[in-house]
Amino acid sequence: MNRLALLLLGFTMLEMTTSCKFLHRHELMAGRNEMYSYLGPGSDQVERGKFPKIIFAEDSAMLEEGEKRKLAPVGKFMRENPSARLLLAGFAGEEGTDEYNRVLGEQRAQVVRKFLLESGVSDAVMQTLSYGLDIPEGLDHNERSVQIGIVR
């Protein structure tokens, strides 16, 4: 009896710790997952450059066929590395005003996220952000694209 109780307790605790790692997107004002606590400029936790940049047409957040093919290796990588997380960073070129560029970059990152969702990558292991026209330290100038970084 005691052993069973301990086992059940163990399972419950395991369940609780695992579920704490994932984002609760259904909560209206959920904050960021602490696992992503600082992944900004200068952070060496993000591995960039493993996947090619996904390029977009001017003012567009539509993922073109040629760019979709570039995303095939990402799904494969995530299946082989179940503990990895992805950071999808969206950019815009000289397309418009600053705030429009920021939102356009985010639209692009979300479009890539949705494609990866459909190819089997879990929502819980991806986060998006947009830099708009700005170039964070440590990155090349990237127009009209989404860059995929890996967090292990």
Binding site: L23, R25, M29, A30, G31, R32, N33, Y36, S37, Y38, L39, G40, P41, S43, G90, E99, R102, V103, G105, E106, A109, Q110, Q127, T128, L129, S130, Y131, D134, P136
Partner: peptide, 30 residues
């Protein structure tokens, strides 16, 4: 982007007290 992500902050200009008010996943702006 001081947190690494685009979040929204509020400053009280009388006291310079500053708080982060929106830090949802994704991009928060405008």
């Amino acid at each position: 982007y001081v947190s690494g992500y685009p979040d929204i902050y509020m400053i009280d200009l009388r006291t310079n007290a500053r708080r982060r008010i929106v830090n949802a996943p994704g991009t928060n702006s405008g």
